[in-house]
Design a protein around this nucleic acid. Structure first.
Lengths: 231, 231
DNA sequence: CTTATTTTTATCAATTCTGTAAAGATTAGC
DNA sequence: GCTAATCTTTACAGAATTGATAAAAATAAG
């Protein structure tokens, strides 16, 4: 995934442990956070606690099928808009129709090709991200930070910076006059599942200061760093 | 067709019976009158009798593709003004295949989300169809990319390139100064239902760089590739 | 059906980026 | 002005990403 910021959470629901294992492996590898349930009833329980962004739901399950599970989920306000993606066998065409009736966003036909599934899921989140992230461009002071071409202009002069520096600068510039301690920056820029030493932030700050005018990034001793326009 | 009939009639054309069934169910539920055809030749026949207000046309079909079918329909005076909405696997396919040329009014990218489709169709009947502009020819830097004869001129010198390379270059050149990661390129150029390894993109990029001046395609490490005129 | 071309995958080398440690500099508090 | 804490800077190792090449697979052409 390109952006480390929010890690999408996926709930897998299938009565076949082999399928669960297969999907879990492949999706975890892509950096998604995964939880699973072996039937529909369990699924609703897990969903309430886990709050997934996407639910992968097998249609044919004992106790309670996928359609009914989806129906129940849709009754919960929290899951009115959550993505639901059905897993179905080719034979059960009728379920496809019924599935969309309960607000399925897409469906995958078994046998599942992991690569295809991963690619579809990624595309799904990407489209959503595009709609949300309209702030592709930040103009602040004499800086123009543009995510579409990953460029930073300093008073019109282009600056080259690697990914992490760009992300760090973007984040700070997006919240001017607000201090962040190193932990917060690590969480917001590096991500929640990355463990690095706090001092790492310092080094990146330093590299930024080599490129943009010094006064933009202020150190607050004992507290953290802050993007500011004032002296 | 501008006149708003009491019950709009829609003709579905797709070689996949599952898609037909899915769409038929969802559109009928919305009160449209539906007929379907499994290929382009059949479609023309059915259209003559059914006189639809809107034709939903799959681009990729055996025997006769959607573009050719649309062309034939447009030859019939009765269908000169009928709404035609293409179903395509790739967003880019729409313009690539010159769908606009045969008077397409809009397009839907697969996989189809019924809820989205229904609202698009409703909107279509509500508003006046608007012409979607296209670019058969891209002139950028010293390159001229011409889709009508599938040629690329570099400073006047013709370059020969296979399909995928051409598509990739076209796409990048159409969106200069915008980075795309490999996933995005795969989705836009390869299509939503083609699943190949991400690094496949690299090889095509490399081949492009052998033909066009190096500086046109920039690598942004950890991010993706970008077409640019700047150094 | 065979051959040629294109497309995709796999592998290894080259490059760039990132994280860490450690020494030097600065600041704040006393 | 001294001391301790905190931050800055440098340098380097190893992670991660990309480039280049070759070979396999798929597709198109003859």
């Amino acid at each position: 995934m390109a952006n480390a910021l929010p890690i999408p959470k996926i709930l897998l629901v299938d009565d076949d442990p082999d399928i669960i294992e297969l999907l879990e492996y492949n999706l975890q590898k892509e950096g998604f956070e995964i939880k699973s349930a072996l039937d529909g009833i369990q699924a609703v329980e897990v969903a309430k606690a886990f709050k997934p962004d996407l639910i992968l739901l097998d249609v044919m399950m004992p106790r309670q099928d996928g359609i009914e599970t989806a129906r129940q989920l849709r009754l919960i306000p929290e899951f009115k808009e959550v993505y639901i993606l059905f897993l179905t066998a080719r034979a059960e065409e009728y379920t496809e129709v019924a599935a969309f009736d309960v607000g399925a966003d897409d469906y995958i036909v078994k046998p599942i090709k992991p690569r295809a599934l991963v690619s579809r899921i990624k595309a799904m989140f990407r489209r959503e991200a595009q709609q949300i992230e309209s702030d592709e461009k930040i103009e602040i002071g004499q800086l123009v930070i543009n995510r579409t071409n990953y460029s930073v202009l300093n008073d019109g002069n282009p600056l080259v910076m690697p990914k992490k520096e760009f992300e760090l600068l973007s984040f700070l510039a997006k919240h001017p006059n607000k201090v962040f301690n190193r932990d917060e920056l690590l969480e917001k820029v590096w991500g929640t599942d990355v463990y690095v030493v706090e001092r790492t932030v310092d080094v990146h700050i330093r590299k930024l200061r080599e490129k943009i005018p010094e006064h933009y990034i202020k150190t607050l001793k004992g507290v953290g760093y802050m993007f500011t326009l004032e002296a």
